[in-house]
Design a protein around this nucleic acid. Structure first.
Lengths: 248, 248
DNA sequence: GACATTAAAATGCCAGACAATTAAAAAGTG
DNA sequence: CACTTTTTAATTGTCTGGCATTTTAATGTC
């Protein structure tokens, strides 16, 4: 573990990189205690604040946790799927909003990934997953539901579908794709008629999942993708028309 | 933007959360300059080092960048796909290694996602993507190639397949799944015979991509998944047997 | 032995300073 | 005036030293 004081990079960034490398390579293992801040400062020939900045960088990625007190210190953290979920959702959301990713591209990616889960979910889903899907479909039919709540329920429905595949890695990967779409979906106004159509498609998907019919799940997902994209186009077009009317 | 000095959480973590929230919500936009460290310290009623720790946390997530000098400061960073790739690969790798994710589960997720790209890639891949695939197949046939180099080439091959779908969001999502598998794959010893089998399957996949035959791409990917998992099982079984022999 | 007290070790936080970098403003120069 | 050089100011990067807080372990007391 070496750092280069003449590099243009921050010392704290270099130190963080060095420690991260040790963790990724497995030379620092889960729950192992790092040297104290003072010892690290001594080792790298830097001051304690610099070491602290480095440790905060690692903490921001959930790679370490710190504990105060006599036997405290920084410990290599077991990266949990839940922690990774949250980071992924944030990252994916920002990627979409900051890079002018079109609704179509995001939607295509999301449904492509979701279809990948279809066969596994049809085969392995538990009664719980199916119950969640049915419950969300019911919620989506409630009158007086706001558009935001409708979208949130939509996310829960699809996450149940994904989780039904019983593969944590898959669920983790999909969390970003599904949840990151929510801000984009929130821009759509769901009329009573479009909600009805979506609920009908959701019901068909749940039915196909229940029947264990992977092909039907996939084709219904396809139908849902098509409908969603058409809906978005309609919204965008009508908004553009209105904007033009105003300028005219 | 408020923080609670009596909270159990670190002040620097609270400040980072507050600023992150502003970015995610779009109230701080790309390339916008944050107040100087001194101003932030003043605003939050904390010291400069504490503010700096908060900013380093955000920098670790590529949410801000800093610039020294007169007109310097911290700026909201446009999160690039490349930056997100790297973070995702690190995170996914650690998730697998720290959570005792089996080869089977990881492999299943990876190929499920990759099959999701198949139809898009068959339809849209450019000559470049195809050329990369062919080149990597050729490299994989070179004698004297180390197992690590073989795996690295394998990753490049599959990334070309994924990138062929022409959907950046999909590529980003898949980067983690494909590259995070590499450390696991590296544990496998590839005999001359198994390399030959994999190269044959790669060739079939490339052929199917060239022909634009999505179904064939999917079924060949299936075959590759099955072969890879069988291979891993053989390796694990033979290693277990050897371990047993030693203890006996 | 049970409980209270004290000591020690570690992180959390702060104040103040100086160094390094950068761009803009000011000054100098032909 | 145009161009170059110098100065200055703003900002981040880093260091020193210290105090506060938290937690555990050791010590003492009954």
């Amino acid at each position: 573990m070496k750092i280069d004081p003449t590099s243009s990079k921050d010392l704290s960034a270099q130190i963080a990189d060095a420690i991260r490398e040790e963790i990724v390579a497995g030379r620092l293992i889960v729950d192992q205690r790092l040297p104290s801040e003072a010892e690290l400062a001594d080792y790298f020939n830097v001051s304690r604040p610099t070491v602290r900045e480095a440790l905060k960088r690692l903490a921001a990625q959930s790679l370490i946790r710190t504990q105060r007190g006599a036997t405290g210190g920084a410990f290599v953290n077991r990266l949990r799927f839940e922690d990774a979920y949250d980071q992924q959702v944030t990252t994916a959301s920002l990627l979409l909003s900051m890079n002018a990713v079109s609704f179509d591209v995001a939607c295509e990616a999301r449904y492509a990934l979701e279809r990948a889960c279809a066969p596994l979910s049809a085969a392995r889903r538990t009664p719980d997953h199916l119950a969640t899907m049915r419950a969300e479909i019911h919620r989506q039919g409630q009158p007086g539901l706001t558009d935001e709540a409708f979208c949130a329920s939509d996310v829960t429905f699809h996450r149940a579908l994904v989780d039904g595949a019983g593969n944590k890695v898959l669920s983790y990967q999909l969390a970003g794709a599904v949840e990151a779409m929510q801000p984009l979906m929130n821009m759509i106004t769901f009329t009573a008629r479009s909600r009805e159509a979506i609920i009908a498609l959701h019901t068909k998907i749940a039915d196909a999942i229940e029947a264990g019919d992977a092909d039907r799940v996939e084709s219904e997902l396809n139908a849902l993708e098509t409908y969603t994209r058409d809906l978005a186009h309609t919204v965008v077009t009508s908004r553009d028309t209105k904007a033009k009317d105003k300028t005219a």
